[in-house]
């Protein structure tokens, strides 16, 4: 299971690939909207992280993501031994 720092790194790298620019100074408290990532961009990032981590986040939870922390919390919850779904 990836640690928190590693998850943040995965998010940074994935976001950079999808949005095609770097995000060097992200913290967990950063709002997604401040990163200039639109709704579909965020869904693409989530989708890519799901594939990398072999998890699946529920659609209804994605609408609640406001900050990087919100996303990492969801990912961490799903990544734990009890949270993994058969993918």
């Amino acid at each position: 299971m990836a640690g928190r720092t590693e998850l943040l790194g995965i998010f940074q790298k994935t976001a950079a690939e999808i949005v095609e620019r770097e995000f060097p100074n992200i913290s967990e408290k950063t709002a997604i909207s401040e990163l200039g990532i639109d709704s579909l961009g965020m869904l693409e990032i989530v989708g890519s992280m799901e594939r990398q981590l072999k998890i699946q986040l529920p659609d209804e939870a994605l609408a609640t993501i406001q900050t990087v922390e919100d996303l990492l919390n969801l990912v961490e919850k799903k990544s734990g031994p009890a949270g993994r779904s058969a993918v």
Binding site: I32, S39, L43, G47, D59, E60, A63, T64, Q66
Partner: peptide, 20 residues
Amino acid sequence: RAVFLQKVFFPVLKYLEVTR
């Protein structure tokens, strides 16, 4: 954004039977 996803984007996808 949350309302757009919850009330617009995902409901349209659901009606179209298209998954994310």
